[in-house]
Design a protein around this nucleic acid. Structure first.
Length: 864
RNA sequence: GCCGAAGUGGCGGAAUUGGCAGACGCGCAUGGUUCAGGUCCAUGUACUCGCAAGGGUGUGGAGGUUCGAGUCCUCUCUUCGGCACCA
């Protein structure tokens, strides 16, 4: 290891550290030894040494006997600039990786580039730069920033998703999915962003607007698109959430809502005078006797038939469609003013045999459930609103308690509660809604007009993008053979270079004849290539598997190596990926499992979502002009200070308000550490490794503080992840050491104790400030590297004190503190409290009713 | 509307199980060091009454449980995040 051979130092042996008389302060006495903390000198020095050893952060192969630990931060998009959110994200992951190395784990800590995507094309349009060239120059620039930050990545397994060696496997997976019926093509209404000039997945549409262009309303277009059948795994994706105990509850809830599982029943209503039926989805089949209309989405297939024979109706339906489109574009479909129109047709309620009017409603969604509902105004808020507006009958069929008919009980409408009993519901009267649902759906199934069913909000994943800078979809269209997959041995389908990229829209690849024109592998005739590329979320759905063997050219990854490393022990990233990336990758993992490539069901055992970095109460953004540049921070204060501040200023899961004065404060602290260590370096380097058998009071106090600190930080790493308090604890320790300076000077704090403390201080600091701790590790005479130095153990015996202070309360209010031995029993506590002068003064003339002693905690006197 | 998180000094935040509220840092104040300072050191810093000793108040608000509540319970207000005619 290069650290070792470079870790030389002129040693402590020749150093003569003479202390002047006890009255002289050491730091005044030894200014030459007490250096000035200069990160601009220290950091480049170690950066160069570390760069010389590419194996430094290398993970060991699965044959390693150590416990494995896969820690991963979400890979960045190579925009060219790191921002503070990245620094925070990587500072967390890097601290954890370094801690785990020190704990003796086999750590996998890789990094890569999510390198396909729209900004590269925008740069091409704006600055006439080739996307590939632009992307790679950005990667180079960002890698310099990564190195400056001193992040411990195993770059041997770097991945870059825009390289054919990576994206060929996207194509390979696509073909496998096509074979399994998991990838399919269909014409569909798609979300179209005019600014991106491409299709967006549902997940990329936020309130009817583009996720990249807040101001851009998303349009609906009809296009032939490739889809991945995510819905096939909907049930498993919901169920799997229950097993993800290491995930934030918030993220699990968001995913659960997104998948939107809903149990209910589908019921067919025969259309009067027709062989057709209207199938409705309902979660409240128990209220079916209260259905006083059916409501169809304007796009429902039956509606077109009704409208064909009725021009007035057709016009009304068109109006409803337009209203819906307008609401969708305004981003508040939820607030749409309800409108509807009666079709003049009727359907038959299969339970009651009643005629029910068929309406078309603008509040009915065509793409959820069956696109049709039974309207039960008495027991559904929306139906109630609609029925009231249009004067439709409102029939109460669930009442709060047994033995009461609807007419006798004032029921506040709509009555939405699931409690009570059915009424006016034929043979089901008197049943609880839950029981009724079961019996009624059983009945519907037996009679063949209905079935229990589960509906999901989750839709299949549309992955076609009419863009250039992405993975070509490996499909061919042959006039004779139709859709033909590209044979596996012809992969990768390379993305051609030098393609004209304009803002016009349509796939840029369609304008490249050399790309489009191909040969059909079946008939040998002419075929046309698919010119759409894949959504870049495909790239990130499985990238973390590739890190385990990033340059394998026979397979996407080595199955056995993946089995060793997966699931990821700790994944760290922004909460903004809670849905998109994290659902897609859970889906992809299951697909790969069903292909027999992996055995894990879930990719990530523990997920951590860090808070945003904000400034002045707002998210950093160019438009707000509150962006802080990591480069500037590193130049001004050093990478250690920038990293450490990002961990210190707030607990990692909360938003962090960036205050530059705070960075300066951390830098000051590092300076204190530097001065203390350099001041005592020679003394410590030459000291014995074993602690003296008899310790002075000051030595005990310092050692106690040290071991308390070790305990706190170890605990923070293991459970709480409150690195802000870890760093505060280190600061307290350093403050204690500085305060003990007179004791050092007076010889009451011996060199072996100093060495013991200083060594461990540097070990504790190593995950947070890798440069400074490494520098001082060298300065204090250590020959070996710090990266894999063992994490310090804490000694409970050194933490224990003989005597401590405990509070004494009177009627629950603090009165004073008493000093008493830690082993004292309750009686001793009581006696000590009562003997205290202040306590006596307070209780004089009053009656002590009760004395509560919490051993080794406190005493409370209840007086009257 | 539904779900979730959070409200503590001038600021970021601490208080792990109900047991000394405000650790640590910033800022500020005073003093010192320095040719100089985006330097370093020391002391102080929740609010309030008081020259002081000492007292009172205090964790969004109102109640409650308890010897004791920032922490538990009930109600309520505010902020942020997610979802939202999803039948």
């Amino acid at each position: 290891m290069s650290e070792r051979e470079q870790g030389l130092k002129d040693g402590g042996e020749g150093a003569v550290h003479t202390l002047e008389s006890a009255g002289v302060r050491v730091w005044k006495d030894a200014p030459a030894r007490e250096g000035r903390y200069n990160p601009q000198e220290i950091e480049p020095k170690w950066q160069a040494r570390w760069a010389a050893d590419p194996e430094l952060y290398a993970a060991e192969p699965p044959t390693s006997g150590k416990p494995k630990y896969y820690v991963l931060e979400m890979l960045p998009y190579p925009s060219g600039q790191l921002h503070m959110g990245h620094v925070r994200n990587y500072a967390i992951g890097d601290a954890l990786a370094r801690y785990k190395w020190m704990q003796g784990a086999n750590v996998l800590h890789p990094m890569g580039w999510d390198a396909f995507g729209l900004p590269a094309e925008n740069a091409a349009i704006k600055n006439h730069r080739e996307p590939r060239e632009w992307t790679f120059s950005n990667i180079a620039a960002m890698k310099v920033q990564f190195d400056r930050l001193g992040l411990a990545y195993d770059w041997r397994n770097e991945i870059t998703t825009c390289l054919p060696e990576y994206y060929r496997w996207n194509q390979w997976f696509f073909l496998r999915m096509y074979e399994r019926g998991l990838a399919y093509r269909k014409k569909s209404k798609v979300n179209w962003c005019p600014q991106c000039a491409t299709v967006l997945a549902n997940e990329q549409v936020i309130d009817g607007r583009c996720w990249r262009h807040e101001e851009q309303i998303v349009e609906q277009r009809d296009l032939e698109q490739w889809f991945l059948r995510a819905t096939r795994y909907a049930e498993e994706l919901v169920e799997g959430l229950e097993t993800l105990e290491g995930w934030p509850e918030k993220v699990r809830t968001m995913q659960r809502n997104w998948i939107g599982r809903s149990e209910g029943a589908e019921v067919g209503f025969a259309v009067e005078g027709s062989s057709a039926e209207v199938r409705v989805f309902t979660t409240r089949i128990d209220t079916i006797f209260g259905a006083t209309s059916l409501q169809l989405a304007p796009q429902h297939p039956l509606v077109a038939g009704f409208a064909a024979a009725d021009q007035a109706l057709a016009r009304e339906v068109d109006a409803l469609v337009a209203q819906q489109a307008a609401a969708r574009e305004a981003g508040d479909l939820g607030a749409i003013e309800k409108h509807g129109v009666a079709t003049g047709r009727y359907a038959i309620n299969p339970f009651s045999g009643e005629r029910v009017p068929i309406w078309v409603g603008n509040y009915i969604l065509a793409d959820y459930g069956t696109g049709a509902i039974m309207s039960v105004p008495a027991h559904d808020a929306r139906d109630y609103e609609f029925a009231t507006k249009y004067g439709l009958e409102i029939r109460v069929v669930v009442v709060p308690a047994a033995g009461q008919a609807s007419g006798q009980v004032p029921v506040e409408l709509p009555y939405l509660a699931d409690e009570g009993v059915l009424s006016d519901s034929g043979i089901y009267d008197g049943l609880a809604p839950v029981e009724a649902r079961q019996l009624m759906s059983d009945f519907a199934r037996q009679r063949g007009f209905g079935t229990e069913t589960v509906t999901y909000r989750l839709k299949d994943w549309g992955i076609s993008r009419q863009r250039y800078w992405g993975t070509p979809i490996p499909m061919l269209y042959c006039e004779r053979d139709g859709i033909v997959p590209v044979p596996e041995d012809q992969l990768p389908v390379l993305l051609p270079a030098n393609v004209a990229i304009t803002q016009e829209g349509g796939s840029p690849l369609a304008k490249v004849p050399e790309f489009v024109n191909a040969t059909c592998p079946r008939c040998g005739g002419a075929a046309r290539r698919e010119t759409d590329t894949m959504d870049t979320f495909v790239d990130s759905s499985w990238y973390f598997y590739r890190y385990t063997s990033a340059h394998d050219d026979k397979a996407p990854f080595d199955t056995r190596t993946v089995a060793y490393w997966f699931p990821i022990d700790q994944y760290i990233g922004g909460v903004e990926h809670a849905i998109l990336h994290l659902i897609y990758s859970r889906f992809w993992t299951r697909v790969m499992r069903d292909m027999g490539l992996i055995t894990n069901d879930e990719p990530v055992a523990r997920l951590f979502t860090q808070g945003m970095v904000i400034k002045g109460g707002a998210k950093m953004s160019k438009s707000k002009g509150n962006v802080v540049s990591p480069n500037e921070m590193i130049t001004r204060y050093g990478a250690d200070a920038a990293r450490m501040y990002s961990l210190f200023a707030a607990p990692p899961d909360r938003d962090l308000d960036w205050q530059e004065d705070g960075v300066a404060g951390v830098s000051r602290f590092l300076g204190k550490v530097y001065r203390f260590a350099t001041r005592h370096a020679e003394q410590a380097a030459s000291a014995a490794l074993t602690l003296p058998a008899v310790l002075t009071g000051e030595e005990q106090a310092v050692l106690r503080k040290l071991h308390q600190t070790i305990a706190r930080i170890t605990e923070d790493f293991e459970d709480r992840w409150h690195f802000n308090t870890s760093i505060a604890a280190i600061m307290e320790l350093v403050n204690t050491l500085n305060a003990a300076e007179p004791a050092v000077e007076a010889g009451r704090l011996s060199p072996p104790v100093l060495r013991h403390v200083l060594d461990r201080l540097l070990l504790l600091l190593a995950p947070f400030a890798p440069y400074l701790s490494r520098e001082l590790w060298e300065v204090t005479g250590h020959q070996d590297g710090l990266l894999r130095a063992p994490w310090p153990a804490y000694d409970p015996a050194l933490i224990a004190a003989e005597e401590m202070e405990f509070p004494v309360q009177i009627n629950g209010k603090l009165c004073t503190v008493i000093r008493i031995g830690t082993g004292a029993d309750e009686a001793a506590f009581e006696a000590a409290a009562l003997a205290d002068e202040k306590v006596q003064a307070r209780i004089a003339g009053r009656q002590v009713v009760k004395i509560i002693v919490v051993s080794a905690k406190m005493v409370n006197l209840v007086v009257r």
